[in-house]
């Protein structure tokens, strides 16, 4: 049995006796995953679906994510909702850098994943994962609110599995892991660099 885990049979037995046992890790992750504050910004039509998710019909508050913060200093989650143009990309990276650890990114919709229908164009970034690490990708154009809720639950599952100690502990607890990434500069023909090689490697062509 791993560190921070309790035998389920023992826990049930103790609970029957009126003793509730938990671990620091479980308590910590339970608290964090049920209070994720997203950063309040939208980039394109995906933002409309994000707004719908936050409104009464879909109600992201059921998952503890209703407090959209207009400041990166108070946000835990960045929902990249929409087309990231090359002109906007440095600002997105800067906002990510300004968020306090632990921080998570949901890449919402085809554009934020890969550039989507604008992939072959001159002015759209071919995916925000070129500059910052992404936790959950949601395909769709735009994804429905249910898909965003699913991504949110997926992220909660991911947070729940994070370790506080040990070699495989969460990235934000490891002082060696970077929490800020270089902001790309506006170049003469493209962003410089076009991708951060530490974060992203383009898929290679395999010839058989």
């Amino acid at each position: 049995m791993g560190e921070g885990q309790i035998d389920e049979a023992l826990r049930t037995e103790l609970q029957r006796q009126g003793v509730w046992v938990t671990s620091m890790q479980e308590l910590y992750n339970w608290g964090r995953k049920n209070s994720i504050w997203p950063l309040q910004f939208g980039l394109a039509c995906c933002a409309i679906e994000m707004i719908a998710t936050a409104a009464s019909r879909y109600d992201i508050a059921r998952f503890g994510g209703e407090i959209f913060r207009p400041s990166p200093r108070q946000a835990d989650l960045m929902i990249v909702a929409g087309t990231v143009t090359k002109k906007m990309a440095p600002q997105i990276v800067r906002l990510y850098n300004q968020m306090a650890d632990p921080k998570y990114v949901i890449s919402m919709g085809a554009c934020a994943i890969s550039g989507g229908p604008f992939k072959q164009g001159y002015n759209v970034l071919k995916g925000i994962d070129r500059y910052i690490p992404v936790d959950v990708y949601i395909p769709g154009c735009p994804p429905r609110p249910e898909a965003l809720l699913h991504a949110f639950m997926e992220l909660q599952r991911k947070i729940d599995e994070q370790k506080l100690t040990g070699a495989d502990k969460a990235a934000h607890l490891d002082p060696e892991e970077p929490s800020e990434f270089p902001v790309p500069a506006f170049g003469k023909h493209d962003l410089e660099p076009p991708a951060n090689p530490d974060v992203f490697q383009p898929p290679e062509l395999k010839r058989v």
């Binding site: 071919k126 506006f186 003469k188 023909h189 493209d190 076009p194 898929p203 290679e204 062509l205």
Partner: peptide, 24 residues
């Protein structure tokens, strides 16, 4: 108005050459 000030090309011209950022 759409591209950044440091940009030098005019992308809607027919002889515009994109940066070689092709991906698989």
């Amino acid at each position: 108005i759409l591209m950044w000030d440091e940009f030098e090309d005019h992308p809607m011209r027919k002889d515009y050459v994109q940066p070689d950022d092709f991906e698989w």
